[in-house]
Design a binder for these strands. Structure first.
Length: 602
DNA sequence: GGCTGGTTGTAATC
DNA sequence: GATTACAACCAGCC
């Protein structure tokens, strides 16, 4: 397999770890004592155009790469983050690469990709080293210790974790120092030919809406110095003026943020997610470290241990600490829970169709086959009653013009900044699915995938299942009100005033229900509540009327959920695959749902 | 088979 | 601000 030469040319492939601190894979690579070391990033078609990535997340990614590249440069002026192929058929000729090292990625698409990369590399006699570093615990280990089953609750994760080592994650590793980073190959010896562009198939580019030159078959990505460095936004077809997020990427940003929080021992020790406000901004009520976990600009093990050390210090001083699962370590355990659930189920984890853990609900706009999902299509309608209406509701939800200011403010914050508080996500996700529109969670998950800078497939999909009560959570009668829930946190309506500025002057009495404000007041406050759009008019601004009666919709949704739970189908049931489920739901040919009958369980 | 707990509901009542 | 009814889900435990 390995060449006998003592020369070690090590290719280090950064993917889920855009950092130098606590990367077990990077530490392994450097401990080989390479003669030559080439840290690389490669353009994965999945990221470039097969999965949804909006401008804000692109921006966060490139900032993170620039930061990493600069960190390498500061340790060794000849180094940077190189854009290069992760493997090559020409390994033997290609400067004689001997090792390929990367962090383990258990996302389902990534497993298939990595299997192929490993096969090609090993065929070429290159030794491949893969190390877990993305989670507290290796998701595959958690699954094994959970009897091979997907982890469906925090107690299962805790029990499984107790069977791994001492039940706690491993301590973080130090970042390499300036003597630890060897030189790269001279540029002329690197196999960099033929990658001035990255091909993009416009036919399947789900991000074409964001791209300048959307019909182009490729994007230019040579970097501003034409030297195979980190490309600019422009090169990947993103207009810099589309970037609105105030949140910045990069390992140094992440470590500064974490260090700041760690100084505040009270905040760390007493943190309980359900007691943090979804309506707070400047400053936010939570840490905003989630995008850094996604890009690996912060090690989750460092996060966990820094917090743990504070909590142990507080405990010794007889100061109180919050407990799992609402405290910070508990929040990080949820991340591992979703990762391990995905690791157990594989590619079907991301959808209903074929997924054993997901309840089948007769949602509107249900996506019906894996092929459709892979190409980002809606998949048509499973039954056509109200489907056009549902599509309209979906679009109004996505664009933040439902007529419910709390929902619209959150959706506009999401679109602008790429981040909203976890409870805000609860609110809008419940509203789209079981608590309002009765639209499939898969459609909502697609929107979050595109817009969130912290989008993590496992957590996003898992949380949508949770909120839609299709897996992990089942108390569907606990329904978020688009009026009461926001009011509880933000009685003055400050979040609404910021993100729906047309309502900024409304009295707090009406800010959550502007349609109830008398016309004279609407005129006085400079915004008419009418129609279904948000737009300027000659005599002032317009905010839409609510797109439906929420109380009525809540009742309809609750009945639907009761029925679906009673029917009890899951994504892998035969009736779902062959679409004969309609019969079980009493839906007649032609798609008409039956008139509401007596409650089924009376 | 019954009881309890489950990260984060709402509205009415005291 | 705490308590309770609402209508009633699942999993885990005894």
């Amino acid at each position: 397999m390995k060449s006998n030469s003592t020369t070690k040319i090590v290719l280090y492939w950064h993917r889920t770890d855009l950092r130098l601190h606590d990367s077990p894979a990077l530490t392994s690579a450097l401990s080989l004592k390479p003669t030559t070391f080439i840290p690389i990033w490669t353009w994965d078609p999945h990221y470039v155009y097969k999965s949804r990535v909006g401008p804000n997340r692109w921006s966060f990614l490139l900032e993170s790469q620039i930061n990493l590249s600069n960190s390498y440069k500061s340790l060794n002026p000849k180094q940077k983050l190189w854009r290069r192929k992760p493997f090559s058929q020409n390994y033997g000729k290609d400067g004689g690469v001997t090792h390929l090292v990367f962090e383990k990625d258990t996302d389902s698409y990534a497993r298939a990709r990595d299997e192929e990369v490993i096969r090609l590399a090993e065929e070429a006699g290159v030794e491949v080293i893969v190390k877990m570093g993305r989670n507290l615990f290796d998701p595959d280990d958690l699954v094994r210790k959970n009897g091979g089953k997907p982890t469906m609750s925090i107690s299962q994760v805790e029990k499984a974790a107790e069977k791994i080592g001492d039940g706690r994650p491993e301590r973080p590793l130090d970042a390499p120092g300036s003597n630890d980073i060897p030189n790269p190959l001279p540029i002329e010896k690197m196999d960099l030919k033929g990658i001035q562009h990255e091909n993009v198939d416009p036919g399947v580019d789900v991000n074409s809406d964001h791209r300048v030159g959307k019909d182009k078959q490729y994007i230019d990505i040579m970097g501003p110095n034409q030297d195979f460095g980190v490309p600019t936004l422009k090169e990947i077809g993103i207009n810099p003026s589309d970037i609105e997020t105030p949140h910045r990427g990069g390992e140094s940003v992440a470590l500064d943020l974490l260090n700041g929080y760690i100084q505040n021992e009270e905040y760390i020790g007493l943190f309980e997610k359900p007691n943090t406000s979804p309506a707070a901004f400047e400053p936010q009520s939570t840490t905003l470290l989630s995008p850094h976990l996604h890009f690996g600009t912060l090690s989750v093990r460092k996060f966990w241990w820094d917090v743990q050390d504070v909590m142990e210090k507080r405990k010794k001083a007889k100061k109180p600490n919050a407990s799992i699962p609402t405290n910070i370590p508990g929040q990080l355990l949820f991340r591992d829970m979703y990762f391990a659930a995905q690791a157990a189920i594989g590619e079907a984890f991301c959808r209903t169709y074929g997924n054993p853990i997901v309840r089948f609900i007769d949602w509107h706009l249900q996506t019906k086959s894996p092929e459709k999902i892979a190409h980002g299509e809606s998949g048509g309608k499973l039954y056509d009653v109200d489907s056009e209406k549902a599509e309209e509701w979906f679009l109004r939800w996505k664009e933040g013009r439902t007529g419910f200011p709390w929902i619209d403010a959150l959706m506009r914050q999401l679109k602008q900044e790429g981040w909203i508080h976890h409870l805000g996500r609860h609110s809008v996700a419940c509203f789209l699915t079981r608590g309002g529109c009765y639209v499939s969670w898969e459609r909502g998950a697609e929107v979050f995938e595109e817009m969130l800078i912290d989008h993590e497939t496992a957590c996003n999909i898992g949380n949508w299942m949770w909120l839609s009560c299709t897996a992990f959570f089942a108390q569907f009668y606990r329904c978020y009100s688009p009026i009461s829930f926001g009011k509880k946190w933000d009685p003055e309506g400050n979040l609404i005033r910021r993100y729906c500025p047309e309502l900024a002057k409304f009295d707090k009495k009406y800010i959550y229900e502007p349609w109830r404000a008398p016309i004279a007041d609407q005129r006085k406050w400079g915004c008419r509540v009418t129609g279904d759009k948000t737009d300027w008019t000659e005599d002032g601004q317009v905010y839409p009327k609510p797109m439906f009666d929420f109380d009525e919709r809540r009742t309809i949704c609750l009945d639907g959920m009761k029925k679906a739970y009673h029917v009890g189908l899951h994504g892998d049931d035969k009736q779902v695959k062959d679409e004969s489920w309609r019969k079980a739901f009493g839906i007649e040919e032609g798609g008409q749902r039956p008139q509401k009958k007596q409650k089924t369980n009376q």
